[in-house]
Write a protein that binds this DNA or RNA. Structure first.
Ligand code: MN
Ligand code: MN
Ligand code: ZN
Ligand code: ZN
Lengths: 171, 171
DNA sequence: TCTGCAATTGAGACTCAGTCTCATTTGTTG
DNA sequence: CAACAAATGAGACTGAGTCTCAATTGCAGA
């Protein structure tokens, strides 16, 4: 399926969601969905704002945030923490829940999905009589490339910068 | 071990860390460590600031943040995400790594540690040739109490509303 | 196609957590 | 106890994100 066809499909999908909610498909919303599904993967709100500006489409910060919120509600976009102080977004194509390995040296992100891990989480919740709806796992560390280049795993102060909010895996 | 004795022990521990770094144990730092280890568990920076003010100890916002940073560096305090837009802190007593189940209805936090889960994470990293140093897992959902009260699990898009009624502590 | 009007937009004010600056104060070491 | 580096407080600043409101726009119905 060609790139643009898929993108147009996502616009239709969003249009349907908006219709259901009694909301309108505006040119701004269309342009944003097109941009998100055509070129971005993990991205920041302000980065998207800037991209639109670059393309000569003047869309306000407020509209960008408002549209992202709608996209999250529609399930077409997910808002995730990637170990930084602000959110990242990623489009959800079709299916796949996944979690993230994040290199604290080069910032690269590796996605993974593991059924065993997911199942174990469900078991833990059951044991605690907790009904899970959503989870968020980031593993921070050193990617293979950086390892090969002789980088050392996280100096403590580096961890402070990038691994904020993380808990220690191997003490 | 009585409460106050343990607290004083933590102050000594922090004093040692500061000494090693060529830093000073000030009255403000001492008071903050005492407060954190005596009464808080998961807490916010501004909440701590307010508590100190309540006690008649005037410690500036800057000092609170600076001291928390030092405590994180020393390993005595951990900075965590609990599904809200800002950080929470928790003191680390006895090096127990754990992750969190967070109720999106009442905000309660359940801690857990699971060796199987931790081991599986290491295996995933190995397969991706990724060297992990930290991780951060939050599972959001509905706690047993709220379930019993007939609350319904939040849709993922409601997750960002957690803490909507949180006390305003900033001056 | 035209119209009415609720939904949407943009500009910019605002919030809030967190950081930084710098003049003044304080703890430590000799 | 003096010297002086480290620390503090007040408040300015930052940056992500939210809100307000007058002007605009999409769209359902005539
Ligand atoms: Mn992803
Ligand atoms: Mn905890
Ligand atoms: Zn890397
Ligand atoms: Zn609950």
């Amino acid at each position: 399926m060609p790139h643009t066809v898929r993108t147009e499909k996502e616009i239709t999908r969003f249009a349907g969601f908006l219709q259901d909610q009694g909301l309108k498909l505006t040119t701004e919303r269309t342009a944003l969905v097109r941009e998100i599904f055509a070129t971005h993967y993990h991205f920041e709100a302000d980065e998207l704002l800037f991209k639109m500006k670059e393309k000569g489409l003047k869309i306000s910060r407020a509209t960008v945030y408002r549209t992202l919120e709608l996209l999250v509600k529609s399930g077409m976009v997910r808002r995730v923490h990637l170990g930084e102080d602000h959110y990242h977004y990623e489009h959800v194509t079709g299916n796949s829940h996944h979690d993230h390995l994040i290199c604290t040296t080069c910032g690269s992100v590796i996605e993974f999905h593991d059924d065993v891990l997911e199942q174990r989480q469900r078991e833990i919740c059951e044991r605690k009589r907790f009904t899970p709806t959503f989870h968020n796992l980031q593993i921070l560390g050193l990617c293979a490339d950086c390892r090969k280049k002789g980088e050392l795993p996280d100096a403590p102060d580096r961890v402070k910068m990038i691994g904020a909010g993380a808990t220690q895996l191997r003490k």
